[in-house]
Amino acid sequence: MIAELRYYTITPGHTQSLLDQFTGTSLPLFAKHGITARGPWLRRLTKGEQLVYLLEFEDEGDRERRWTAFRDDPEWREVVASGAGQVPHIAASEIVELTR
């Protein structure tokens, strides 16, 4: 099993927008493409907040296939394209890979 623990530092003033996009679009698309997702949670920082969630995959091949399908999904491509020219919701990110 492979898990990705993902931390997204939120651009100030964009917490609700990112949560809405994540719960309204990302989570349903993860489910559509068979990606097991846990979360999201908000983590308070000294300055700002992070969106934190966990994704689970059976192995490296499974992860690659599912991420490719997710990124190629027309609905996700539309989300990415619609953000062009706007202030990004995510100021920084970190992905921690966990295996067992």
Results as ranks from 00 to 15, higher is better:
residue 39 G to W: 00
residue 37 A to E: 04
residue 83 G to S: 08
residue 40 P to W: 01
residue 68 T to F: 06
residue 65 R to I: 08
residue 89 H to T: 13
residue 89 H to P: 04
residue 35 I to M: 07
residue 78 E to L: 06
residue 59 D to N: 15
residue 46 T to R: 13
residue 44 R to K: 15
residue 51 L to Y: 08
residue 67 W to T: 06
residue 62 D to E: 07
residue 57 F to A: 00
residue 37 A to I: 00
residue 89 H to N: 13
residue 42 L to A: 14
residue 64 E to L: 15
residue 46 T to V: 09
residue 76 W to P: 02
residue 41 W to G: 14
residue 36 T to G: 05
residue 75 E to C: 01
residue 54 L to N: 05
residue 36 T to F: 11
residue 58 E to I: 05
residue 74 P to R: 12
residue 57 F to P: 01
residue 88 P to T: 06
residue 43 R to F: 05
residue 31 A to G: 06
residue 84 A to R: 13
residue 50 Q to W: 02
residue 75 E to Q: 11
residue 88 P to Y: 00
residue 90 I to Q: 12
residue 30 F to D: 05
residue 51 L to T: 09
residue 67 W to D: 08
residue 61 G to C: 02
residue 57 F to V: 06
residue 87 V to F: 00
residue 64 E to A: 13
residue 31 A to S: 12
residue 90 I to V: 15
residue 93 S to D: 12
residue 77 R to V: 07
residue 91 A to E: 10
residue 89 H to A: 07
residue 48 G to R: 09
residue 76 W to R: 01
residue 82 S to Q: 13
residue 74 P to I: 08
residue 76 W to A: 00
residue 90 I to M: 04
residue 72 D to N: 13
residue 37 A to D: 03
residue 33 H to A: 14
residue 70 F to E: 01
residue 62 D to H: 08
residue 72 D to R: 15
residue 47 K to Y: 12
residue 68 T to C: 07
residue 29 L to S: 04
residue 51 L to M: 10
residue 40 P to R: 05
residue 68 T to Q: 15
residue 93 S to I: 11
residue 56 E to L: 15
residue 89 H to K: 11
residue 85 G to Q: 06
residue 63 R to L: 06
residue 32 K to N: 04
residue 31 A to C: 09
residue 30 F to H: 11
residue 88 P to C: 00
residue 44 R to H: 15
residue 37 A to K: 04
residue 96 V to M: 14
residue 40 P to Q: 03
residue 31 A to Y: 01
residue 73 D to F: 03
residue 57 F to Y: 15
residue 74 P to Y: 02
residue 84 A to L: 12
residue 61 G to T: 03
residue 97 E to W: 11
residue 89 H to E: 09
residue 73 D to V: 06
residue 64 E to H: 13
residue 73 D to R: 01
residue 39 G to P: 05
residue 58 E to F: 05
residue 56 E to Y: 10
residue 46 T to H: 12
residue 64 E to V: 04
residue 73 D to K: 06
residue 49 E to C: 07
residue 72 D to F: 01
residue 66 R to H: 03
residue 71 R to V: 02
residue 95 I to W: 07
residue 59 D to T: 09
residue 38 R to F: 14
residue 71 R to Q: 12
residue 61 G to I: 02
residue 34 G to T: 09
residue 46 T to N: 10
residue 81 A to D: 03
residue 94 E to R: 14
residue 39 G to E: 02
residue 94 E to M: 13
residue 80 V to K: 12
residue 79 V to D: 01
residue 51 L to P: 06
residue 87 V to C: 01
residue 32 K to W: 03
residue 56 E to C: 07
residue 32 K to F: 02
residue 70 F to R: 10
residue 36 T to A: 14
residue 85 G to Y: 05
residue 75 E to S: 08
residue 86 Q to D: 03
residue 85 G to W: 10
residue 73 D to S: 03
residue 72 D to Q: 15
residue 49 E to A: 08
residue 84 A to C: 06
residue 35 I to L: 04
residue 80 V to R: 15
residue 51 L to E: 04
residue 93 S to P: 08
residue 80 V to P: 05
residue 80 V to M: 11
residue 37 A to F: 03
residue 72 D to I: 02
residue 35 I to G: 01
residue 83 G to M: 02
residue 40 P to F: 02
residue 61 G to P: 06
residue 46 T to D: 14
residue 52 V to E: 09
